[in-house]
Amino acid sequence: MTSTDSRSVLLEAPGRHRLVEGPVREPGPGEVRVRVGAAGLCGSDRELYTGTRPAQYCVYPIVPGHEWSGTVEAVGPGVPERLVGCKAVAEGFRSCGLCDRCRFGDTSLCEAGYEETGFTLPGAFADHVVLPARLLHPLSDDADLRAAALLEPAAVMAATQLRCPGLPGERVAVVGGGTLGMLGAQLYAACHPAELTVVTRNTARAERAMAFGATRLISPEEAAREAGRYDLVVETAGARSTAADSVRLARRGGRVVLTGIPAPGAVDLDPIDLVVRQIQLHTVFGAPSDAWAHAVRAFNAGLLTPAPLITAEFGLEDYAKAVEEAGRAAGKVLLVP
C-alpha cells in the first residue's frame, strides 16, 4: 500500500466481506478527511454482519464503522485549515439541519429520513473516513484515540443524562453491565448520588463497575426485591424484561429512562402502573449534538475514562474475527487500522 492508497472493509452482503484498496479520497466542500485511529464494534455492527439489522437502517454494500476516533488529515474548501492535525470524533447521524426537529436541536430526530455513518454511508472500518466538518467534535491534543473510539456510546449516555440528570443525594440504578451501563455509571457517579447501583448478571464486571463509581452491584434477582427504591433508573441492557424491571425499581413519581433497544418479545409495560405511580418515562435513541459535546467535554476533563472497557484489538484484515470476538467479549472490541 502506498501513501496515496486507503484500505477499507467492504461488507458486500451479510456474512460476505473483503478488504479493498483504492486511492485516498479528497474531501469536498465543507468536508474533512480523517485518518482513523481506532473504531469500535457493538451489537448493531454484529447485526449488520449477520443480516439481522432492520432493513430500513442499513444498506449493502457498506463500509461499516460508526464508533470511531481519528486525526484530521485534510480539509475541503470552506473548512478552516487549523483543523488539520486535530484529534476528533464525529457524530454519526447525518441530520439535515433544516427541519423542525433539527432547528430545536433534536438532530437525532431529524425528519429528513435516516442516514448514518457506517450503516447507510461509508464508515470507519477503514484507514480513512470522509464526512462533513460540521459533525466533528475536537479532542484535546493528548487524547487517547483508542479510548476516544468509545465516545459514540458515551454520547448516548450523555443524552440520557441531559434528559434525566441525577441530583446529589439521589438513589440511582443502572440496569445492565455492558458498555452503555459502565459509561452511564461513570457519568452518574460524577453527580454524587447517595447510592449508585448497577444491576447485572455478569459478576466479572463487579470490580470495573465499582472502579467507575458504583456503590453496589446486584443481580436481577436481588433487584426484584428492591421495587420502588430508586429515584432514577437508567435501563441500558435491552433484554426482554429489563424495561418493565426498570419501571418496577422506580419509586412513586420516579424517573426511568430507556436506552437499550428492546429485544423481540419484550415484556409489556403496564400503563396502569405508570399512571397510578406517576412514573416519568423517557427514551433515548442515538445522540444529538449537545450530547456529543457533553460527552467530549467529560472525556477531555478526565471525568469519563473508557479505556478500561477495551478488551481486544484487531487489524482491518481480521474484521470477521473481531465481529466474532465482539459477540462474546465482556468489553469493547476495536479495529485499529
Rank of each mutant, 00 (worst) to 15 (best):
T4R: 10
L10H: 07
R18K: 14
V20P: 10
E21N: 14
P29V: 03
E31F: 02
V32N: 01
V36Q: 08
G40L: 10
G40N: 07
G40Y: 07
G40M: 09
L48Q: 10
Y49W: 15
T50G: 07
R53I: 10
P54Y: 09
Q56N: 12
Y57L: 15
P61I: 02
I62G: 03
P64Q: 05
G65C: 02
H66V: 05
T71H: 11
V75L: 14
P80A: 12
L83E: 00
C86M: 13
C86L: 13
E91Q: 15
G92D: 03
C96S: 01
R101G: 00
R103A: 15
A112P: 00
G113C: 04
G113R: 13
E115F: 09
E116W: 04
G118H: 03
F119P: 02
T120E: 07
P122F: 05
P122G: 01
A133K: 00
R134G: 04
L139Y: 04
S140I: 12
D141A: 15
A143S: 15
E152G: 08
A155V: 07
M157G: 06
G166A: 12
L167I: 10
A173K: 03
A173R: 01
G178Q: 08
G178S: 07
G178E: 06
T179R: 13
A194L: 13
E195R: 15
T197A: 09
E207H: 10
M210P: 02
G213L: 11
R216A: 14
S219Q: 03
P220T: 05
E222K: 11
R229C: 05
Y230P: 00
V233D: 01
S241Y: 04
R248F: 00
R248T: 01
L249Y: 12
G253M: 11
G253S: 07
G260A: 08
A266H: 14
A266C: 13
D270N: 15
V284K: 02
D290L: 14
A291H: 09
W292P: 02
A293D: 09
H294G: 02
A295D: 01
V296C: 05
R297S: 14
A301S: 12
L303S: 12
L304G: 05
A307P: 08
E313R: 14
G315P: 10
L316Y: 00
E317C: 11
E317M: 06
D318V: 03
Y319C: 11
A320N: 00
K321I: 00
E324H: 12
E325F: 08
G327Q: 07
R328T: 06
V336W: 07
